[in-house]
Structures are given as C-alpha cells and as structure tokens.
Design a protein around this nucleic acid. Structure first.
Lengths: 132, 132
DNA sequence: CTTGACCTTCCAGTGCACTGGAATCTCTAG
DNA sequence: CTAGAGATTCCAGTGCACTGGAAGGTCAAG
C-alpha cells in the first residue's frame, strides 16, 4: 500500500501522513526498491485511532504518548483515563469562559441596539464596546 | 508620557505596545529629541478600548477595523453591531461543539472505568478511545 | 519516447497575539 | 565617571496541526 492509497483509505492527505511520521505518531514503514513508503493495513488502524483520539480532543503530543505506551508493550489505559479527565476539566473551564463571554456579548448587543451612531463617539472610540 | 509609563498605566508590556503600533492599532506617537515615544493620555484610552474589545472576543484585526472607521471620522456603530452578532454566532457554534465533545468524553470516561487494562490492547491500540 | 500521475526530500509559511533577546543609545543619581 | 534603569531597532521564536512549493525520481499507459 503506497502513501496515496493510505491517504485515500484514511481520508487524510499524503502531506499529513508524512507529517505524522515525522512527528513520531506513525512508525517509519518499509520502502519499495524505488524508495516509496510501503504500508500495511496496520497503518490504517493507527490513523483511525489517531482520528478517534483527536475527536476526543487529545493533542498530537498526548496521542503520541498513548501510542508510545502501547508500542512499549504497556497498557495505556491508566494514562488515557487521566487524559480524558484532564480534558473534561479543560472543557468545563472553556465552557464557563464561553458562557461568560456570551453573556457579555449579549449585553453589548443590547447596548448596540440602544446606541445612536451620531453621538456615540463624543467621548471615546465606541460607547458600545467601551462605555465610560 | 514614555512607553514604560503607558505600559504601567495600561497594564501591558512595552513589547505589546510597540507591537500594537506596528500592527496599526496605535498611531505612531511623536518622539522626544532622544527618540523616545512620547504619549498623551489618549493612548491610555485607546489601549483601554482595545482591552474592552478584546474582552468581547474581537480579534486585533477586527479592532483595527473599528479604530480605522473612528479615525476616519465615521461612526463604527453599524460595523461593531455586526461584529458582535458574528461573534455571538461563533460562540454559539463553539459552545455546541464543546458540549458535543464533552458528551463524547463522558462516554469515554464511562468506558474507561469499565475497561480491563490487561485485555484492552488485544485488538487495537486502545479500546477506550477507539473500540472496534 | 513522452506524458502524466504519483512519489521523494527539504525548507518555509500559515494564524494569532504576542514574547525573547541582542546590540545599542539616553538619561539620572551618586 | 560610572552604574543602572529604561529606551531604541531588528530579528526570530512560541504553540498547534498542518500546508505549500520547489526540484527532482519512478512507473505504467499510449
């Protein structure tokens, strides 16, 4: 299986696959006599795993750490469980942040609807965004 | 007012202030005979505005566009109103995304708690993240 | 023999908002 | 006179996950 086939099978680009290899996520495959990368079906599974892990919000660095454990013969379960709970906490933080920003923006939208463009610059740049 | 004073007054660093100038957010101030930037109180207001606008989630590019309108003598109200509604929509999208990811992660956490590390690698890399 | 698809490497850029560091200049206090 | 704080410019790097492009090698079909 050459890199283009793997790209098609995985829905990635050849660029991305080479990048993953260089980033230590995908082992270097054997080469054909011509120097072409020659993949087995395992690579498809590995890329599918990377996709799933990314879908869960893991970074490539985290995914690499999980793969390294597995490749080293260790079970990554504990590590993965920890990563998941870290990401959950992170998402809660970001949700709270976003909700706060949303509230602020709604307030600004309210203010915008009450603002007269002809007088809004009299003492500042924009009374909607930055009232005194 | 020299750049250090402005930095103290605005809570930014001198680096950031020079960066804002270079990015077209802050007009080039006059210089002292020694070549030092010499700011008036206006700069403080402008930086406060930038801070407020950033707090509302606007990017520096958007803030620049608002400032450009005001500097050009036009009222930026309409533009600002539009930016606010765009950002609200964007935040709704991201909230929905995050909630989806959170649901997925909770599912994964559930699965993690039911996973036996000794058998989890039997047909893949990690049955928590990527079950078959 | 040529065309075209596909492969190779390597280097560099993207977006965003800064941040770090080097080399040099200016001013004030002791 | 010197030390130190603070200013100047310019270049380059950060993190993240790619993406683009140049210059060239390989292979099957026509």
């Amino acid at each position: 299986m050459r890199i283009g086939d793997l790209a098609t099978a995985s829905g990635l680009t050849t660029k991305t696959i080479r990048f993953y290899e260089q980033a230590g996520l995908l082992p270097e495959p054997p080469r054909t006599p011509a120097g072409y990368r020659d993949y087995t079906g395992d690579a498809t599974n590995r890329l599918a795993f990377i996709r799933d892990a990314q879908g869960a919000g893991l970074t490539l660095a985290e995914i690499r750490s999980v793969l390294a454990l597995r490749d080293g013969g260790e079970s990554p379960c504990g590590h993965v469980t920890e990563l998941i709970s870290q990401h959950l906490a992170d998402i809660e933080r970001r949700l709270a942040e976003l909700r706060k920003t949303r509230t602020a923006l709604r307030e600004l939208a309210q203010r915008a609807s009450r603002t007269n463009p002809d007088t809004c610059g009299e003492n500042g740049i924009c009374t909607i965004l930055s009232p005194h």
